[in-house]
C-alpha cells in the first residue's frame, strides 16, 4: 500500500502507464494450445476486463499471471511503482504475490474454518512474519510484534468495513453467505497490499443488488477511495456478466479460442464485428 502511495508522488509511475504487460503469452497443455501469443497491457489506475466465451483461455492467462501455471512462451512484465520491471514468468507463485499481484478464485477459496478477521491476517503474513523476528522474538514476547499485529488488525478492520463485513468479523468464513464470501475474498486479496488485483469472475452467482455493490467496491479500489489511506490499485478482471464489465471497466480485452480478437474501450468493443461473432456464432460463414 505504501508502495502505491509512493507511486503517486513518483513521476516515473504515472496513471495510464502500463502496470502489467502481457507479451506474446503462449500456454500449451500437451497438444492443446490454450493461449496463443496473446499480448495486451493493463494500465495503472484502470480496470481492465478480460472477456470471452467459455474455454477462450481467460483463466489460463490468469493462472499464468499469478504463477499457478508456468507459461510455455512469452513474457509477463509487472512495472513496479519505482519503475523497475519484474518478469513474472520467472517467479514462483508466492513470490509473484509478494511482488504485488493478488488474486481471487473462480470457485471461492477462503479458509472456511478461520474467522473473517483471521483470513485477512493470513493475507498479511509477509510483513507480520518479518515483525516476529523469525518467530523467535514474538515467541518470547520480544520485538515489536504486538504493534505490528495491531496495525495489521487495523488494516483488516478497515477492509472489513469497506466490504460491509465488519459485523461478521468473528464469524467463520465458511458460515458467511455466498455474496459475503466473494467480498471477503476481495478484501483478503487487498490486504496483501497489491499493485495489481486480479479477480476471476467476481460477480458470478451474485444477485443484481450485490453486483451493484461489487461494482462500487471495485471502482473504490481503483480510485483508492475504498479504504481511507489506501492507494489506488489497478484491477484486472475476468467476467461473464457483460453488464458489470461495460459499466466499470476502462479497457476490455476479448479472447476467443486462445487468441486476442479485440481490445479497446467498452463502447468500442461492444460494436466490434469479431466480438459479436464470437459471442453469437459466425453469421457470415453460415450465410456463405
Amino acid at each position: 500500500m505504501s508502495a502505491t502511495l509512493a507511486a503517486a508522488a513518483d513521476p516515473a509511475a504515472r496513471l495510464g502507464d502500463p502496470i502489467l504487460e502481457v507479451d506474446q503469452l503462449t500456454m500449451r497443455f500437451g497438444g492443446l494450445l490454450a493461449v496463443d501469443a496473446v499480448s495486451f497491457a493493463a494500465r495503472r489506475g484502470e480496470i481492465t476486463a478480460l472477456i470471452g466465451p467459455n474455454g477462450a483461455g481467460k483463466t489460463t492467462v490468469f493462472n499464468c499471471i499469478t504463477g499457478f501455471y508456468r507459461p510455455t512462451g512469452g513474457a509477463l512484465r509487472l512495472h513496479r511503482a519505482d519503475g523497475a520491471a519484474v518478469e513474472l514468468q520467472r517467479l514462483k507463485d508466492h513470490r509473484i504475490a509478494r511482488a504485488g499481484v493478488a488474486r481471487t478464485f473462480q470457485n471461492i477459496r477462503l479458509f472456511p474454518g478461520m474467522t473473517a478477521l483471521e483470513n485477512l491476517l493470513v493475507a498479511q503474513h509477509g510483513p507480520l512474519m518479518a515483525a516476529t523476528g523469525f518467530g523467535i522474538g514474538a515467541l518470547l514476547g520480544l520485538s515489536g510484534y504486538a504493534a505490528a499485529e495491531r496495525a495489521a488488525i487495523g488494516r483488516a478492520a478497515a477492509w472489513l468495513r469497506a466490504t460491509g463485513l465488519i459485523d461478521r468479523a468473528d464469524d467463520p468464513a465458511g458460515a458467511l453467505p455466498y455474496g459475503a464470501q466473494r467480498r471477503l475474498e476481495i478484501a483478503r486479496a487487498m490486504c496483501t497490499g497489491p499493485a495489481l488485483l486480479c479477480l476471476d469472475e467476481p460477480a458470478a452467482g451474485l444477485n443484481p443488488r450485490e453486483s451493484e455493490e461489487l461494482a462500487r467496491l471495485l471502482r473504490g479500489i481503483r480510485d483508492g477511495s475504498a479504504v481511507p489511506g489506501a492507494g489506488a490499485t489497478s484491477v484486472l478482471l475476468i467476467e461473464h456478466d457483460m453488464g458489470i464489465v461495460m459499466r466499470i471497466s476502462d479497457h476490455v480485452v476479448v479472447l476467443d479460442h486462445g487468441k486476442k480478437i479485440a481490445e479497446g474501450p467498452p463502447a468500442q468493443v461492444r460494436e466490434d464485428r469479431h466480438v459479436i461473432a464470437a459471442y453469437l456464432g459466425e453469421p457470415e460463414e453460415e450465410q456463405a
Binding site: F68, R95, R109, L110, V122, A123, H125, T132, G135, Y145
Partner: peptide, 26 residues
C-alpha cells in the same frame, strides 16, 4: 503461542486451503 502468530496462522491456513495460501504470498 505460535498458533497466535503468523507462522501458526499460516499452518492452519495451509490446512484449510493450500492453493489460497500460495496466492497470498505464503
Amino acid at each position: 503461542r505460535i498458533r497466535r502468530q503468523p507462522l501458526g496462522r499460516a499452518w492452519e491456513a495451509m490446512r484449510e486451503d493450500e492453493i489460497a495460501c500460495r496466492a497470498l504470498g505464503i
